[in-house]
Design a protein around this nucleic acid. Structure first.
Lengths: 248, 248
DNA sequence: CGCCCACTTGAACGTGTTCAAACGTCGTGG
DNA sequence: CCACGACGTTTGAACACGTTCAAGTGGGCG
C-alpha cells in the first residue's frame, strides 16, 4: 500500500509528526483513518451551535473558523483553523456544540466518524494523548486571546494576531519569504479582536504608517518582525510549538 | 479499607461522578491516587508562568484562579476554580506553564504526580476520557468569556459571570438558598472582565439598582435569576453540566 | 457598464479609563 | 480605648479609546 512519507495528502499526520514521534504503526493507523472528504465553499457553516455531530472535521486545505453569535448583530470569532487541525475534536467528549464552525475560504475537509477516532485512540493510547494535547493548545490560544480582548488596545491586538497567524502558518510550511495568506476582511478581523470594523480600519492604518507589515489582497507580509512582536507584546510560548515525548 | 460513598473527602470523585458513571474499580483507583495535601494562604501563587511542573493540583477546599500578567500593571484573570477541579491538568501534555495559578482564598490543595495520573489513565482509559472532558469544559468556558470580553458591555459581563459562578457552585452543592460564597474584590472582578476597578464599581451599582442581587462580604445572593440571566445573556449550555456516557 | 463588496473617511457620541481624593471597616498596636 | 494603617469601596471630573451612523471611494466581476 502507498505510504506517502511527507504527509502531503494528510496534513494531520504532518501536524502530529511535527510535535510527537510517531511509530510506523501509528503513522499507518492515521493514514488508514476512514475519512470522507468534502469540499465547502467559502463562508459556509459546517456545523452549528446546538448540533450534536457524530463526526469530526479535519481541515485538509483552506481555512476554517469558529464563532459565536450574541444577540442579533454581534459576532465573536473564537478561532481560526489551518490545514492539519481538527477544530471540533472536542465534540468527542462534549456532545452538544456550543458554537459554530464555518469555512473562511473554500476548503477541503475530511469528515471522520467519532467511532473511528475512539477505536484509533483505544488501540494507540499515545495518539489519544497527542489529540488531547491539540485541544489543550487550542485552549492555550483562547487564553492568550482573552488577554488581548481584556487588556490590550486595538493596535496591539492586531499586531499580536498577525504574529500568531504567521507563526502557526510558518510551522506548517505555509509562510513564504515573510508572507502568509490571510484572506480575512477587516470586518472579520474586528469580530476576532472585539472591535468595530471602522476602528479596525483606523488601527490598521496606524500600524501601517509604522511600516511593520503590508496587509492587502488577503496576504500579510511582515517587514519588521521584532517591532511587530513588540507592538503586540507577542511571546510565542503559548503556542507550545516545541515537540514533546509522549508518555506511556 | 474505608471507601466513603459520598466523596466528601475527595471532591474529585464527586465531580467526576456527577458527570460520568464510574465503575467500582474506577472509584477505588481514584481514591487510591497518591496525593500530597497542602494548605495555602489566600492570594498565593501555586505555580507560575514558565514553570515545568511534574504534578497537578486538585482543589480540595477553597478557590483558585489562573491569570496572566501583561506589561507591568495589567492582569487578566483567566479562570476561577472550585473544589473538585484540577486547574493545571493541561500540564500533563503542555510541559511549560503559560500562565500563573494562585489561590483566591485560603485553600487545601492535593498535589498529584503526573506519573500517577499517567498510570491511572493507562489502566482506566475511560478516566482519561473523563479528565480530557474536564479540560474541554475549561476551554468551553474560555470561549464564553471571550464572547463577553469582546462583545458584551460591562453590566452584561458582570451579570453573566455571576450566573456562571452560581451555576457551577450549585452543581457541587455549594449554593444555599440562592446564595454562594464569592470572595472576590471589585478589582479582581475587573481583572476578570477586562474592566477597571472604577468602572466595575459603577456597573455593579447600576445592576444593584435593579435589585437583581446583593453582592457584599464575599457573598452573592441572586434575587431574580431570570432577569439576571437575561441581563447577562446567560445560556448555561456551554458549561456542559449534563452527564454523559463514556465511550470504550 | 453597473453593481457589489470591502475599504476609507468624517463627525458626533458613548462607554470605559485615569487620576485623585474621600469614606468606611477592620485589625493592630500604643 | 483610641490612633493608626491597610484595604476595599465609592465619588467626581477630565480624558481617551472605540462605536455608530452616514457617505464616499475604488476595484473586481458579471
Amino acid at each position: 500500500m502507498h505510504r506517502p512519507t511527507e504527509g502531503e495528502q494528510n496534513p494531520l499526520v504532518r501536524k502530529l509528526e511535527s510535535i510527537v514521534d510517531l511509530t510506523p504503526e501509528e503513522r499507518d493507523a492515521l493514514f488508514d483513518l476512514p475519512m470522507m472528504v468534502r469540499e465547502f465553499r467559502a463562508h459556509q457553516d459546517i456545523v452549528r451551535d446546538g448540533d450534536r455531530p457524530s463526526q469530526c472535521c479535519l481541515v485538509i486545505e483552506g481555512f476554517a473558523l469558529r464563532y459565536k453569535l450574541v444577540g442579533e448583530d454581534r459576532r465573536q470569532i473564537l478561532a481560526f483553523h489551518i490545514p492539519g487541525e481538527i477544530p471540533d475534536l472536542q465534540s468527542l467528549y462534549l456532545k452538544t456544540l456550543d458554537h459554530n464552525l464555518a469555512t473562511l475560504t473554500q476548503a477541503r475537509v475530511g469528515l471522520i466518524q467519532h467511532r473511528a477516532l475512539y477505536d484509533l485512540m483505544a488501540r494507540y493510547p499515545r495518539l489519544a494523548g497527542a489529540f488531547w494535547r491539540e485541544t489543550l493548545i487550542d485552549a492555550a490560544i483562547f487564553r492568550e486571546w482573552m488577554v488581548g480582548l481584556g487588556r490590550r488596545r486595538a493596535p496591539a491586538r492586531i499586531a499580536h494576531f498577525f504574529c500568531e497567524m504567521f507563526r502557526r502558518l510558518e510551522a506548517i510550511g505555509m509562510a513564504k519569504n515573510g508572507t502568509i495568506k490571510l484572506p480575512i476582511t477587516q470586518e472579520e478581523l474586528g469580530d476576532t479582536l472585539g472591535l468595530s470594523a471602522v476602528h479596525t480600519n483606523r488601527s490598521l492604518q496606524e500600524l501601517r504608517s509604522q511600516d511593520l507589515f503590508t496587509f492587502e489582497g488577503g496576504r500579510l507580509t511582515i517587514h519588521d518582525w521584532d517591532r511587530l512582536a513588540e507592538e503586540g507584546e507577542f511571546d510565542p510560548l503559548y503556542l507550545h510549538q516545541d515537540s514533546m515525548k509522549l508518555p506511556e
